Amino acid sequence: MRALTVLSVCLLLCLTGALAQTSEQKIGYFDQQHILENMPEFKKLNQEIVVKGEQYDKILKGKYEEFRLKSDALEKLAASKADAAILRDKAVELENLKKSYEDFEASSMNELRNYYASLFEPIKQKVNEAIIFAGRQKGYAFLLRMDLNPNGGDIWPVVLYAKDSTNNLTSDIMKNLGINAAAASTRKTGLPQVLQRK
């Protein structure tokens, strides 16, 4: 029993010491989406994706139009009771056009995803380094992201409450990235952001 009491006292002292330490540590937050939206590299990447997407759409529309015209021609041949060998040949040609359309659609989407991922990685790395630099420079023990991962996957922590806006390092990080920003994001953090939508 005495050993349990001594252990309880030691545990209580350790917890009290840990709580005292954490109460002195600064916690900051930032709006990563706001930072990305203002980065010239990110804007350029998004514009490149739009241009490439439009080019692929143009090719897909051309393939679809060719398929539609050949499909109409096949229907006319079938209605005019054309020879079976000709109908089979045109049907195979139509099937090949359909497959070509589907293959191009899948490969172009995959290429866009890979292109975006390869060019986004250095941008993400640059932002991460600026975040670490700003946190160390300002003496923060923890920095929390208040946004969702743009790549999908894991969900980053959401701040439920921020005492004031002095802990918002969005402007400092943007400054470290060489982005001219007059003020930080004005988006509300955590629960105020959720409640504002209703």
Rank of each mutant, 00 (worst) to 15 (best):
L19H: 09
K52E: 04
Y64K: 12
D147E: 13
L97G: 06
Y56W: 08
A182C: 04
E93V: 00
A73Q: 04
S107V: 05
T189R: 15
I35T: 13
K61S: 13
Q125R: 07
G135A: 11
I155P: 11
E41V: 05
R113A: 12
S165D: 09
L11K: 02
N176Y: 09
Y29W: 14
V50Y: 13
E111P: 07
I132K: 11
D72R: 01
V9Y: 10
A134C: 08
L191K: 09
C14A: 15
K98I: 02
L12D: 05
D103Y: 02
L74S: 05
Y140M: 07
R113D: 11
D89Y: 14
S185D: 07
K70G: 04
K124S: 15
V158D: 03
E54C: 04
A73G: 00
L19M: 07
L177A: 08
K52P: 01
V9G: 11
L60Y: 07
M146N: 02
T189Q: 10
A18F: 10
Y56E: 05
I131V: 12
D103N: 08
V50A: 15
C14E: 13
F142T: 05
Y29D: 10
Q193G: 00
F104A: 03
L144M: 13
L195E: 14
E93P: 05
R113S: 11
M146Q: 10
D57G: 15
N38G: 12
G17Q: 13
V158Y: 06
D103W: 03
V50M: 11
R187C: 00
P40H: 13
L12P: 01
L112C: 05
V159D: 00
S71E: 07
K99C: 02
S165R: 13
T166P: 07
T186G: 15
E129A: 12
F42S: 10
I123T: 00
A84T: 04
E121N: 03
V9N: 09
